[in-house]
Design a protein around this nucleic acid. Structure first.
Lengths: 227, 227
DNA sequence: TCTGGCGGTTGACCAAAATCAATTCCATCG
DNA sequence: CGATGGAATTGATTTTGGTCAACCGCCAGA
């Protein structure tokens, strides 16, 4: 793991599109960016563990990070898989506390680390930054609730169908997409074992879903929607 | 359903202890309260459906409300059971949007309804109110993530044991509590069918958990902790 | 070209919990 | 006091998905 203060052009562009940056003007964004450094992670590097004292919140610039919790018994469950543009642990801005889950890089990952104490000072001077963070928190809350509802009500093929429908580019009745990550990452995102994802895909073959590596084709969006 | 502008003493006390009110001074709390009216709900009354235009966010004063989502096929899953002091739908303050889930009273329920547009105006004058709401959002996000992790990693008896341990009053090695609501509500909270909750309780008998109606006794907290 | 390793798939098996049905418990009301 | 209806429990069955193991295909490196 390696820390530098510099953003390259691509990284700056990803950061600018993050939820908590999108609605800020140039000066505000610059002030916020000044609280951050860039962190390069090796694969499987642990950013922090549940219970660690929280000093930073993060925004993914490239790669993937998994957020997870432990069970007393070595078992662990993924809560979220963060992609470029996603932020996490901003919920700790509200108070000096500890991380409530662990975070681990899944491959080579690049992140912006925002110093929470510095950001907290900014909030008083620049209330719009607080609103932007509130916006980001709201979106996270909604998507986490949706995830929970999905877990409680949808079967594996339904979750996969839902993912495909919300991420594909439609082209008349057909649609297609290319997974930006390996299938085992998708499985984690959906809260499934890799085997279950594989079986879900083969169950969806009868609904017109064709999988070749990371390339996925949907022959009839309407059929898929009523899975 | 009946709407009035008045709070009685007990209701005002519950409201004052809500997450998004707790850290405000008198003037701030009063300004926020001025955005609210009181709503009395009949059992099973639907406050709003997923997709409705959002005008209010809510704080429970008494009774219980379930938040739920539909699946295309009449199936539905509970996302959260709100108790007195809980707020919900504050995430819609950040933008004029639609409710992302339905809300239904479970019995006679009393709620404070905050007019979102009015609150949004307040935020600019009183930045500390924004912080208080951010705090509430953060807490909701964390508890929703914990719920998700629990769903993905804990069996029914583990979830029940966890609930008991986080809600009981300890008394040396033993502990006890009285459920504030019927068991079917607890089942919904934990994402279980009522039958599964019942079976979980009987599985916990061997771990020293005694259930008589809503009264629950734990003979050895340590034993329960390592379920 | 062979080989090792990894991601992915498939099959067999098992555990957990949803579902359906029947029954019991209990509180309230006549 | 018995009758009634909702909540809770119990049993039987089914569905779902986790787990373990074997296997396939593909790519990289010797």
């Amino acid at each position: 793991m390696n820390r530098t203060p510099t953003f390259d052009g691509h990284e700056a562009a990803v950061l600018a599109k993050a939820d908590f940056m999108a609605e800020l003007d140039h000066g505000e964004a610059e002030a916020l960016r000044a609280c951050a450094t860039v962190l390069l992670c090796d694969p499987h590097a642990v950013l922090f563990e549940e219970g660690d004292k929280a000093a930073y919140f993060y925004c993914m610039l490239s790669g993937y990070v998994r957020l997870y919790r432990h069970n007393g018994n070595g078992r662990q469950a993924d809560i979220r898989i963060c992609e470029p543009g996603d932020s996490f642990a901003e919920c700790l801005i509200h108070a000096d506390e500890t991380y409530r889950y662990g975070a681990q890089a899944m491959d080579h990952a690049v992140l912006a680390c925002f110093h929470i104490a510095k950001v907290r000072l900014l909030l008083d001077e620049q209330p719009r930054i607080g609103k932007a963070i509130m916006r980001s928190l709201s979106l996270h809350l909604i998507s986490t609730m949706e995830c929970l509802a999905g877990d409680r009500m949808q079967t594996a093929p339904q979750r996969v169908a839902n993912y495909l429908l919300t991420h594909c580019v439609e082209n008349g009745a057909t649609a297609s997409l290319r997974l930006p990550f390996p299938k085992n990452v998708l499985a984690r995102k959906l809260g499934l074992a890799p085997e279950a994802l594989s079986r879900a895909f083969s169950a969806l073959k009868t609904k017109g879903v064709t999988v070749r590596g990371r390339a996925i084709a949907v022959s009839d969006v309407k059929v898929l929607r009523q899975v």
